[in-house]
Amino acid sequence: MFKRVLLKLSGEFLAGDSGFGISPETTAGLAHLITQAHAGTGVELAIVIGGGNLWRGARNGAGMDPATADYIGMLGTVMNAMALQDAMEAAGQPTRVMSAIQMQAVAEPYIRRRAMRHLEKGRVVIFGGGNGAPFFTTDTTSTLRALEIGADVVLMAKNKVDGVYDSDPQKNPDARRFDTLTHMDVVERRLEVMDATALTLCQDKGLPIVVFDLFGEGNLRRLLSGERVGTLIQTPVPDPAAAG
């Protein structure tokens, strides 16, 4: 049973069928799903959301200074965080947006202890603005924020992919899904779970990752209730007694 979790969402979850922008209907559906799954569990929930539905530096920022392209992407994550906040509060869930890039008119500045206090009071905290520096993905931001707030796990939400496979299940009908992996398994098998910087940080700090299908019936609720869903990535902690 988790006490505090960090949920990593893709910006595309807000886009709807167009695959671009923010769809109010799709965002409302996502907010309802998360709010209903979270209600009554007693689990403290933080969220990091990407900005790929609005901006991808490698594609949209071609020919642009890379740092500038990344900063634009960070601003996109704040836009998504605000949209998700609005939808979640309409669904009855108190929410706070905290941004690593200061913009007090629309979001609180990210302050670690303030974020933890919000969580303790039952508010969902949505982190926007990346980690405030270019050249880092929202995967890395998710890992960093999870460690800072003392989260028990990073939940990597996917769409129509119910875990980690040894090959692309949409192309290979014989692809095998893993129930459990270690962080090193992911590295050695070159499995696409998160970027290398984020994965290494999780491994070094012993932070578990769960990869799961967010839209699978009841999956998020089951995870927050302590059930096994998707693929668990965890490196066993050595037993000091065994070493002695």
Rank of each mutant, 00 (worst) to 15 (best):
D152M: 06
A243V: 12
L14Q: 05
E89Q: 15
D152A: 07
V187Q: 07
D162E: 12
R56D: 12
L7S: 10
A62M: 11
K3D: 15
S10D: 12
L232G: 00
T231N: 00
G16F: 12
K8T: 10
E192Y: 02
T26H: 12
A157P: 10
G50R: 08
G128Y: 06
H32M: 03
V106T: 13
E25T: 14
V237G: 00
M64S: 09
G29Q: 14
T180A: 09
G73Y: 09
L214K: 06
F2V: 01
L147C: 04
R123L: 12
T138C: 08
L9H: 06
A31P: 01
G216P: 04
T26L: 00
T95N: 02
P109Y: 10
R222N: 02
P173C: 11
L7Y: 06
T41W: 08
F13V: 13
I49C: 07
G42W: 09
G206N: 07
N159M: 09
Q170G: 10
V125Y: 01
G150M: 06
T197N: 11
R190F: 00
P236R: 08
S23E: 09
M103R: 11
V229W: 03
L147I: 11
C202S: 14
G19S: 12
V193N: 02
G92F: 00
I126A: 05
D65W: 09
G163I: 03
A100G: 13
V161G: 01
T138I: 09
M74L: 13
G29R: 15
G52E: 09
N219C: 10
F215M: 13
L7I: 13
G63V: 12
A31V: 02
M64I: 13
R189N: 06
G244R: 15
R222T: 00
G132C: 07
M156K: 15
D65Y: 01
I101S: 02
Q36V: 14
G21H: 10
V229G: 00
L6C: 05
R56I: 06
P169T: 10
T137I: 07
L181Y: 02
S23Y: 07
P134Q: 05
A243E: 14
A151Q: 05
M103V: 14
A133I: 13
R176H: 15
I149Q: 01
D162T: 08
T68A: 15
T77V: 09
M116L: 08
L223V: 07
A196R: 13
H118N: 07
D70T: 06
G122T: 04
F212Q: 03
R177D: 07
G29I: 05
V154C: 04
I34D: 00
E108S: 12
T143L: 03
